[in-house]
Write a protein that binds this DNA or RNA. Structure first.
Length: 790
DNA sequence: GCCTGAATAGTACCA
DNA sequence: ACTGGTACTATTCAGGCG
């Protein structure tokens, strides 16, 4: 019979020496089903040395076959490698586990140039080969299969491989969001001794539950939780930092207690560590929303409450606040325990709310890239792009190169002009739409269309400056792939037009289209990434060279239309907005350069310093835009950011320099009186490497070490929040403390006045004749010293 | 030994 | 483990001075 099937999670298993592809998902009637394909066999390719007797090589490989897990077949096939037709050998094995074994053996056979595609996971292979869409619908010919032990409503045997159909709506998914709290007697909880005291869950069925330890005995709670997951049977399980904390802790804890394993998957197994640092639960999609948060550039410190607040899920100021070091205290105090339970439930509710917003987006990303839902959020941009390419490569019978280590190799990028400093009125920002992708399409750039040095071709494009050549025909894989991405993005942007920008759904769609934009734009960077399978630097280099050519030509054209270019960066041009001239200019650019350009933004007032990549403007919609300045940098204290934002507001909206100066002086006086709340003074910086690797004593590193000594856990990528305190130390690094360990009366308010607020305000006000001395002197007696210093 | 300016380290931003 | 281009602060170090 034929059924409809929506793919949630692919996996595989070897049963009695037979590999089985398992496709977990939902059928057209909304039933949870498992499809098993018994017919798919693992394989890889060998690229022979050219001019070799292939039959002989086939024999040399066949003799390697061993009894217990044999090579099933070696056949000569026609494929492409970097676009060139090649003969390859396709080696089919009995079980996936023997692929790495034969890969090694075959590699040393005489006449073997390269072994390819031996590192593609078995279920990924299946999805690619059948062009299945994770989170998409398929038609599949099946019959009932009589097997037990799976938590699904039906198990089917696949009779012929699933066929994707163009239907991308989501079935009604069962979602379970969870969050755990652990007892932490001293710093970070340790699974060998500290119990899981609370597991909070929220489901799409509307149920909220908490599994509580009996004081310090969490055995029953853990068992109840496992039972509950199996009985609710969610399709998606969402946590926040669940890959980094909750799952590893639960697994370890269950093991330490000597309980039966954490059997929460649809086949009764425990969560497994998988690719991209994510933790997989067979038959379900386990997602860690922290992975999604990492893509939200607007949220600087990626705590659950910050992200929930940003997405409009739960307001930060309505949250129950418990410092995480105090959790044990709250648990042990009968009066306070209720508050802890409330806090824990709010975490789970926030997690649930974020998951609800993220899943539709992640599902789209999964179907575009071909990555399973549970992996797509965990994978970095480069791997998403790579997956996307691999799917397209299969269709063209293009062999997938191996991952190889290469040294870093930079190349020239884009052009950035120095801006004209000061205030400008009535400015239009004109930019090329998706410049790099369109250039790659236009000039047929791609790893398969690139003509190497010494190679000939009849008709080709030549990139300016660098001279790299690309055949005009046939169409490069990149060209067609990017075209599809751009069209998908246009659809979403259409849908957004009907919505109010304040609408949370608008925000979500905006994130979604930005994600596609990121994927499309990253496709260029991918080719210049030394870790890429399809790394071809010349492609990336040619793309930026074309980009430089285009923006330079456009800037010249602007001039010829009587438009003064005030600033330009990569693919954008800032000019005074004379509608007629601008429209003529745009038409001219589109005609001459054959690329789409559009007015991206209109500013009533726009301010530049001498610095590139920094400006602030009042848009025609009455909104203030701040780009690049301290106000949008996460490594300045909130007070300095707020002051700069207000200064910009006053300058742009009222043009009132005097008013701005008075405001700043007022703030400085307040700081000097010690009236600024400590939380406005926290400076956040990221740990970008291991402690030993730092060469100088940086402030955030000393603060981080203090946290470490106090029992906190810190990893690369974490943000450290510190404040500057009074002290004798010569260096700033000797006068900082993690903010959680600092008291208001030890703050070095003078530092904040002179090194945070004044510089951020002066960055702007300097251009209006305001001196450092004028601001610095606020709130203290002016001395000769003030005037003598600069 | 102290002061100063230049070089380097470190981070986060823009496109 | 997408790219290069850029601004900026703090630390470190070399060189001049007395």
């Amino acid at each position: 019979m034929k059924i409809l099937f929506w793919l949630l999670d692919p996996s595989y298993e070897v049963v009695h020496g037979e590999p089985q592809i398992k496709l977990w998902g939902i059928d057209g009637e909304g039933r949870r089903v498992l499809l098993i394909d018994h017919s798919f066999k693992p394989y890889f390719y060998v690229l022979p040395d050219p001019n070799l007797a292939l039959n002989e090589l086939v024999e040399r490989i066949k003799v390697l076959s061993s009894e217990d897990s044999p090579i099933l077949n070696v056949e000569v096939v026609d494929r492409r490698y970097y676009g060139r037709p090649v003969k390859a050998l396709r080696i089919t094995c009995k079980v996936p586990a023997s692929i790495p074994v034969y890969r090694e053996k075959v590699a040393s056979v005489l006449g073997v140039r390269e072994v390819l595609e031996a590192d593609i996971r078995f279920y990924v292979r299946y999805i690619i080969d059948h062009q299945m869409n994770p989170c998409g619908w398929h038609e599949v010919e099946v019959e009932e299969e009589d097997v037990k032990g799976y938590n699904v409503e039906a198990v089917y045997r696949v009779l012929s491989p699933p066929k994707p159909i163009p239907k991308y709506d989501l079935p009604r998914l069962r979602l379970l969001a969870f969050d755990i709290e652990c007892y932490n007697s001293a710093g970070t909880p340790k699974p060998h001794k500290d119990p899981v005291i609370i597991i909070s869950t929220v489901t799409s069925g509307g149920e909220r539950k908490q599994f509580l330890a009996q004081d310090h005995d969490d055995g029953a709670a853990l068992k109840d939780f496992i039972r509950y997951v199996q009985s609710y049977d969610p399709d998606v399980i969402a946590g926040y930092n669940s890959n980094g904390f909750d799952w590893p802790y639960l697994i370890d804890r269950v093991k330490n207690l000597g309980l039966a394993k954490l059997a929460i998957s649809r086949e009764g197994s425990e969560p497994q560590r998988s690719t991209y640092g994510h933790i997989s639960i067979t038959g379900r999609a386990s997602i860690d929303l922290l992975n999604y948060a990492e893509d939200l550039v607007d949220v600087k410190v990626k705590t659950l409450d910050n992200v929930a607040d940003y997405l409009g899920v739960m307001r930060k100021d309505s949250r129950t606040n418990i410092d995480y070091v105090d959790i044990a205290k709250y648990w042990d105090d009968a009066e306070k325990r209720g508050l802890l339970l409330k806090y824990a439930m709010e975490d789970a509710v926030s997690t649930y709310g974020i998951a609800e917003k993220v899943i539709p987006f992640a599902a789209q990303l999964a179907s575009i890239t071909g990555m399973p839902l549970d992996q797509v959020l965990a994978a970095s941009v480069g791997f998403r792009v790579e997956h996307h390419i691999m799917r397209n490569a299969f269709l063209r019978e293009e062999l997938i190169p191996n991952r190889v280590e290469r040294p870093y190799s930079p190349y020239r990028g884009a052009i950035v002009l120095k801006p004209k400093p000061g205030i400008h009125e009535n400015i239009a920002v004109i930019d090329f739409s998706a410049m790099y992708p369109h250039l790659m399409i236009k000039y047929n750039i791609g790893f398969d269309s690139y003509i190497r040095e010494g190679e000939g071709a009849s008709d080709y494009y030549v990139a300016p400056e660098v001279g790299h050549r690309f055949v005009k025909d046939p169409r490069s894989l990149y060209g067609s792939m990017l075209q599809k991405l751009i069209e998908a993005r246009q659809h979403i942007r259409e849908a957004m037009k009907g919505l109010n920008p304040q609408d949370p759904n608008y925000l979500l769609l905006d994130n979604r289209q930005r994600a596609i934009k990121v994927l499309a734009n990253a496709s260029y960077g991918y080719l210049g990434w030394v870790g890429a399978r399809f790394y071809v630097k010349a492609c990336a280099e040619a793309t930026t060279a074309y980009g430089r050519y285009m923006i330079a030509e456009a800037n010249k054209l602007a001039l010829s239309h009587g438009l003064e270019v005030i600033y330009s960066d990569t693919d954008s041009i800032f000019v005074r907005y004379d509608p007629e001239k601008v429209n003529r200019f745009i038409r001219d650019v589109e005609e001459k350069l054959e690329l789409e350009v559009k007015i991206d933004k209109l500013y009533r007032v726009l301010f530049f310093t001498e610095a590139a990549k920094k400006y602030a403007g009042l848009t025609n919609d009455g909104l203030i835009d701040v780009v690049g300045f301290e106000a949008v940098r996460g490594d300045w204290c909130a007070l300095a950011q707020e002051v700069q934002t207000k200064v910009l507001e006053i300058i742009l909206r009222q043009k009132n320099v005097h008013g701005a100066v008075n405001y700043v002086k007022d703030v400085i006086r307040r700081i000097r009186r010690g009236e600024t709340p400590l939380k406005e003074l926290i400076i956040w910086k990221t740990l970008t490497r291991e402690f030993e690797e730092y060469e100088v004593e940086a402030a955030h590193i000393t603060a981080a070490k203090m946290l470490l000594n106090a029992g906190y856990k810190l990893e690369v990528g974490d943000k450290v929040g510190y404040v500057v305190v009074k002290g004798k130390g010569e260096r700033l690094a000797d006068r900082v403390k993690p903010y959680i360990m600092a008291k208001a009366d030890e703050i070095d308010y003078e530092y904040y006045a002179v090194k945070q607020v004044v510089p951020s305000a002066l960055r702007i006000l300097k251009y209006f004749g305001v001196s450092e001395g004028e601001l610095v002197s606020a709130g203290r007696q002016a001395t000769l010293f003030d005037f003598s210093r600069r």
